[in-house]
C-alpha cells in the first residue's frame, strides 16, 4: 500500500465516525429545543388569561379545555398546532405594537449578539491571562490578589456599574453615552458601543469563575504525562498543551455561560438604551406582551443551544477520541 492510499482509508473511516458523532449532537440539540417548546407551552397553558388567542392558529384553549372530554389528545393536538405555527415563524402579533413578533425580535437579536460577542471577548481578555498566569505560578501574591479582585468584580451589581461608567464618562470626559447608539446612516457608533460592551464584559459576574476554571484546567494539563514527554523531547510545551489547556476549556466555559451573558445583556441594554433583544424582553415583560417575550424565550434557547452545539462540534473535531467512544 502506498502512502496516500493508506492515509485516505484511515481518514475515510475516521470521517464517517465524526459525521456520526456530529449528527448525534445535532439530534440532541433538536430534542432539547423540542423540550423547551413543551416547557414553554406548559407555562402558557397554565397561565391565567388567554395566551393562545394571539396566534393565528386561533383556537382558544387555556385551562377551560381541562373540562372537555378526550382531554389528553386535545392537548397534544393543540400543542402540535401551536408548534407548527411557531416553526413556520408565526409567533402572533405584539400586544403593544400589533406587529408580527418574529421579524421584530430577529432584527434586534443581531444587536444583542453583537454586544455579547464583544463583551465575551473582554471578559476573556481579562480572565484568561490571569487564569493562565495563576496556573503557571502557583500561590504567588499576584494569584491571591487577582483572585480576590476578581471575586469583588464578580459580585458587583452590573446595573450600578453601568451608572458609574456613565457618570465617570460624563464628569471626566464630558461625554454622555446614553443617547442612541445608532447613527443616522444605520451603522453603529463605536464609541457608544464601547460602554455597554465594557460594562457587560466586566460586570457579568463571570470573571472569577472563568479564572478559576481556566486555572484548574491549565494546571491539570501541565501536570499531564504527555506534557512531560513534550518537554523531554525539547518540543514547545504550549504547542502540545494549547488544545486541551486552552481551546477546549475556553469553548466549554463560554458555551456554558452564554445564558448568563444574555441575562446580563437584559440589564445592560436597559441602562444604555441599547436596542437589543434584552431591552425588548424587559419592555415586553412590563407590558405583559407575552407573544413577544415568548418568542424571545425560544430565540434565547436557540442561541444557548446553538452555542452549546458549536462547542460540541469543536470538541469532536479536536479530540480524536470523542467520536470513537460509545457514550
Amino acid at each position: 500500500m502506498d502512502n496516500s492510499n493508506v492515509k485516505l482509508n484511515v481518514m475515510k473511516a475516521r470521517t464517517t465516525k465524526v459525521v456520526l458523532a456530529l449528527s448525534k449532537e445535532l439530534s440532541m440539540t433538536l430534542a432539547l429545543l423540542f423540550g423547551v417548546s413543551v416547557l414553554v407551552y406548559t407555562l402558557l397553558y397554565f397561565s391565567p388569561g388567554d395566551p393562545f388567542s394571539s396566534f393565528s392558529s386561533g383556537e382558544t384553549l387555556g385551562t377551560d379545555a381541562a373540562e372537555s372530554t378526550g382531554e389528553k389528545s386535545v392537548w397534544v393536538t393543540h400543542y402540535l398546532h401551536w408548534l407548527s405555527s411557531i416553526i413556520t415563524g408565526d409567533f402572533g402579533t405584539s400586544i403593544r405594537s400589533g406587529e408580527p413578533v418574529l421579524p421584530a425580535v430577529l432584527q434586534v437579536t443581531l444587536n444583542t449578539l453583537n454586544l455579547m460577542f464583544f463583551a465575551i471577548l473582554i471578559t476573556l481578555a481579562i480572565a484568561l491571562p490571569i487564569g493562565i498566569i495563576n496556573a503557571l505560578r502557583n500561590a504567588s501574591v499576584f494569584s491571591s490578589a487577582s483572585t480576590l479582585v476578581a471575586y469583588v468584580m464578580s459580585s458587583l451589581p452590573v446595573f450600578w456599574l453601568g451608572y458609574i461608567a456613565v457618570y465617570i464618562s460624563t464628569k471626566y470626559f464630558e461625554y454622555f453615552p446614553l443617547s442612541s447608539s445608532f447613527s443616522d446612516s444605520g451603522g453603529i457608533d463605536w464609541l457608544k458601543f464601547f460602554f455597554p460592551v465594557v460594562v457587560l464584559g466586566l460586570g457579568s459576574g463571570l470573571i472569577s469563575e472563568i479564572i478559576r476554571f481556566v486555572r484548574m484546567e491549565v494546571a491539570r494539563v501541565m501536570d499531564e504525562e504527555y506534557i512531560r514527554t513534550a518537554r523531554a523531547k525539547g518540543a514547545s510545551v504550549w504547542l502540545h498543551a494549547y488544545k486541551e489547556a486552552l481551546v477546549l476549556p475556553v469553548s466549554e466555559i463560554v458555551a456554558s455561560k452564554i445564558p448568563f451573558f444574555l441575562g446580563g445583556a437584559i440589564i445592560v441594554e436597559q441602562i444604555f438604551n441599547w436596542q437589543g433583544v434584552g431591552r425588548m424582553a424587559w419592555q415586553a415583560a412590563q407590558d405583559r406582551d407575552f407573544p413577544v417575550i415568548l418568542c424571545i424565550t425560544l430565540v434565547a434557547a436557540l442561541i444557548v443551544r446553538g452555542g452549546s452545539l458549536l462547542q460540541r462540534v469543536i470538541y469532536i473535531l479536536i479530540n480524536p477520541r470523542a467520536s470513537q467512544e460509545n457514550k
Binding site: 504525562e225 512531560r228 514527554t229 523531554a232 479530540n319
Partner: peptide, 30 residues
C-alpha cells in the same frame, strides 16, 4: 540536551503520548 543528547522514555506509553496527535506526527516532530 533534551532529546538531542539525552532522550527519555516513560512508563505508561499511552499516557505519555499527546492524545490529540497521531503517533507518527509526534515522531516526525522529534
Amino acid at each position: 540536551i533534551w532529546s538531542k543528547e539525552i532522550a527519555m522514555i516513560f512508563q505508561n506509553p499511552r499516557q505519555a503520548f499527546n492524545p490529540f496527535q497521531t503517533v507518527g506526527d509526534q515522531i516526525r516532530e522529534s
